[in-house]
């Protein structure tokens, strides 16, 4: 078992209002799975993904990753965990405008304090893998949306993470570019990567091995797709 969530709850509190974003979530994900999370806006998909990615903390519950209990970790330990195990792909790409594509990709390795020669080799391989080698020295603003998202995927995989988290990776892309991104994700999964993807697109969700439907902060359906 790669991931095991038990009784995860996430509350947001303001002075006057308390909102429950996630409620009593139990979820297990095996190594090598490709899971699609679906549901209407505001159902808690992204919050769940953020908690899985340790960039948000649950209000209560347990999150085990392999043998590690992540809810007990402090900020520095979580940062170390993220750089060693996780890769992210966002709907809005989240590339840093001031850095070139290869610098954006390299950033994930810099935090691992990897030697420069190895970083370069890995970046070259990653951009090649997603088909944007010819754009490596450009800035994000000089690339199309599809190319930017492929760059974001390259950044996510360059560290060879155990888990790739994708938050509506095709949300800002046209059909063709969306299909290309899904091809890449499928290929990565075929190569052994575990992927959890939030999406609004049923067709893209059908490409995953398992589909989880959420409503009002709870998992309502978890089904395996026939692939």
């Amino acid at each position: 078992m790669l991931i095991e969530l038990s009784h995860i709850q996430r509350l947001y509190r303001s002075d006057e209002v308390e909102t429950t974003a996630l409620q009593d979530i139990d979820l297990q994900i095996e190594t090598g799975e490709f899971v699609a999370i679906m549901g209407p806006s505001g159902c808690g998909k992204s919050t769940l993904l953020n908690i899985l990615g340790t960039i948000d903390r649950p209000t209560s519950g347990s999150y085990r990753f392999g043998t590690q209990e992540l809810t007990a970790m402090n900020e520095a330990e979580l940062a170390k965990f993220r750089r060693e195990h996780l890769g992210y792909v966002f709907q809005s790409f989240n590339l840093i405008d001031e850095l070139t594509i290869e610098e954006n990709i390299e950033l994930a390795l810099i935090y691992r304090e990897m030697p420069k020669s190895e970083r370069r080799a890995r970046v070259a391989h990653a951009v090649d893998h997603v088909g944007i080698a010819h754009r490596a020295r450009h800035y994000p603003s000089q690339l199309s949306g599809g190319q930017q998202q492929r760059a974001a995927i390259a950044r996510a995989i360059v560290g060879q993470p155990s888990l790739i988290l994708a938050d509506e990776p095709t949300g800002n892309l046209d059909t063709d570019n969306g299909a290309q991104v899904m091809d890449i994700l499928q290929r990565l999964n075929d190569e052994g990567a575990t992927i959890i993807m939030v999406t609004h697109s049923p067709s893209h969700a059908d490409l995953a091995r398992r589909r989880i439907d959420m409503l009002d902060g709870q998992v309502v359906v978890s089904v395996r797709n026939a692939i």
Binding site: I55, E75, A76, A79, R82, R83, N94, A108, Y111
Partner: peptide, 16 residues
Amino acid sequence: MLEVGIRKTLGATTAR
């Protein structure tokens, strides 16, 4: 802020 979010997501510590 967003850049900080990205960097931290990629594993940067607060000190860094």
